[in-house]
Design a protein around this nucleic acid. Sequence first.
DNA 1: TTGTAGGCGTTATCAT
DNA 2: ATGATAACGCCTACAA
Lengths: 340, 340
Amino acid sequence: MSSPTIKEIARRLNVSVSTVSRALQDHPRIGLRTKTRVQELARELNYEPNRQAIFFKQKKTYIIGVVLPFIGEEFFSQAVTGMEAAATENHYTILFGQSFDDPEREKTVVEAIRKQRVDGLIISLAKLTFKYDYFRDLEQSGMTVVYFDRVPPFDHANKVYCNLFEGTVDLVNWLINRGCKRIALINGPDKLPASKERLSGYIEGMSRKKIKVDMQFVETTDLSKEGTVQVVKKLLALKQPPNAIISFNDYVHMDAVQYASRQSIRVNKDIVFVSYANLSITAYTTYPPLASVEQFPERQGQKALEIMVRILSEKKGENNASLYYSEELRPKLIIYEQAR
Amino acid sequence: MSSPTIKEIARRLNVSVSTVSRALQDHPRIGLRTKTRVQELARELNYEPNRQAIFFKQKKTYIIGVVLPFIGEEFFSQAVTGMEAAATENHYTILFGQSFDDPEREKTVVEAIRKQRVDGLIISLAKLTFKYDYFRDLEQSGMTVVYFDRVPPFDHANKVYCNLFEGTVDLVNWLINRGCKRIALINGPDKLPASKERLSGYIEGMSRKKIKVDMQFVETTDLSKEGTVQVVKKLLALKQPPNAIISFNDYVHMDAVQYASRQSIRVNKDIVFVSYANLSITAYTTYPPLASVEQFPERQGQKALEIMVRILSEKKGENNASLYYSEELRPKLIIYEQAR
DNA sequence: TTGTAGGCGTTATCAT
DNA sequence: ATGATAACGCCTACAA
């Protein structure tokens, strides 16, 4: 029925378990005859090493825990795909959980995964996670953690993320060159690092072109449809409404553009709409963003897992946890104007 | 640094490991004093049972492998969410892999996961998987498998899926009542069970209303954008073009509707477009389907994992592998006409 | 070249 | 009420 053990093979062949063990590993000093006999029987009986036992002994599982906010977002599902690719490559597998952007649930999920004794943990923090003590303790206790995209604000941590500051500068620059000067930014909640990056980039981009930043044009949404609509309404009601709107991400973009079009704004004529994230699905929407800051989630995910593997293999030798890996990807501005 | 073992606790307290083990499990006949001492020290030292060791002993991992074609599809990402919920509920975790609809890759991924000695495997078959020997062997070898959504065509298997036959009948019925008689079906590849269900439902639906099935109206696409466009072109070129088009899924729908609208078809006026799957994203598209057959992926995923758990707990007692669970969900027709 | 034995952390069985 | 010991499957240092 189920796979035999080396013990069983040893019994059948009247040799010792160590002989079988070694034969199976192609140990150099083992009789060719014996080796062949063992390997043949093993194949015949469909022997498979019990990794449970091996990992138990080596204190390794070759499993990486991955905790993301919500896999329904294309950004994250693509990230997982990248991680999976790298995992397969390195003979790891992925234990998966979602936090649904709830810090409480995040802890629960991480705990459940940790208890499985994964070799490492890749985490993209919940939007509202601002207390990092738990994660500090986690690392303190010896767990290898690589943060992904939604990273904590301190230096002594392994992280892979996309710097949206530069991306936003590029975006603003492109808009201005295109003739838009009254550029609005529908940002996410102030607390989010992601929001801060976008705002700094926005301000920097405007400054470089010597355009005064008008804070009337900078609004924040709680990312709900209602929140976004309210903000757009406000922007449209200005005496001098913007002629370009940068949305926090494609979801915000879609809500914004849907509302605006219903107010008989000629989308991308009266107002140019641009965004981040570049969901492939936007191609099918009525008004895709005219430009998008691409963050390469798949590549990022892959990178994160590769860094994890590297750290793990280094740790094996010596536990020098004072060195941290940080990978900052540069996003790319994609222009769709021609294509659509 | 890392969590101590019961051995360590035993040493410190000058008791035997078995005492510690029992104290930790609230064994009835153990001295209250000893029990408290042990439990206190355990908490103090942050003791955590080594599940690796326990699972190794019990030959259980509490890990369920999940292999899906592609998590970027909303249907599957929602399914995973449902599975995760049920897994958490039952103290299982999920080891995850994608086949990308490639039968070869599917095998590789399943093998990698199987080698981790998961307790069970939930699989949604790759589109082009028509050889089931591998999976038969898998089950033969003792692995518990629950098929999900894309299920094999034989009876002796655990499965959870949505019967699209009934859903399609409902859809056709609705269209006819609405006044559409020339109903076209853009189906998926003939070989897919999913295509067969849709076709049977289509034929049944027409028959029930005494409408002759015109095979000119039944086309198949390879699901690529180009393939779909070609088929739509053909349908539009008929002397008597259809006044309703049922698309295989929302992706096909979006390609079809995009092309049709560019041919200055008045979408949902000249031709009514309906679909399956009900991706939430379609709400943002120019022409969402007017009606959709909802398949409840999250609920399905949850169900699949629950069935898995039930089977596993039954197996624990006695290995009677002759009974199979099959759960056929009835899809629901969702009408959007009013809402949008 | 091959065998013996100990150990990884835990639980369970049998003594005491 | 508590302790000693075997067992799970595998690996490996040491012995022969």
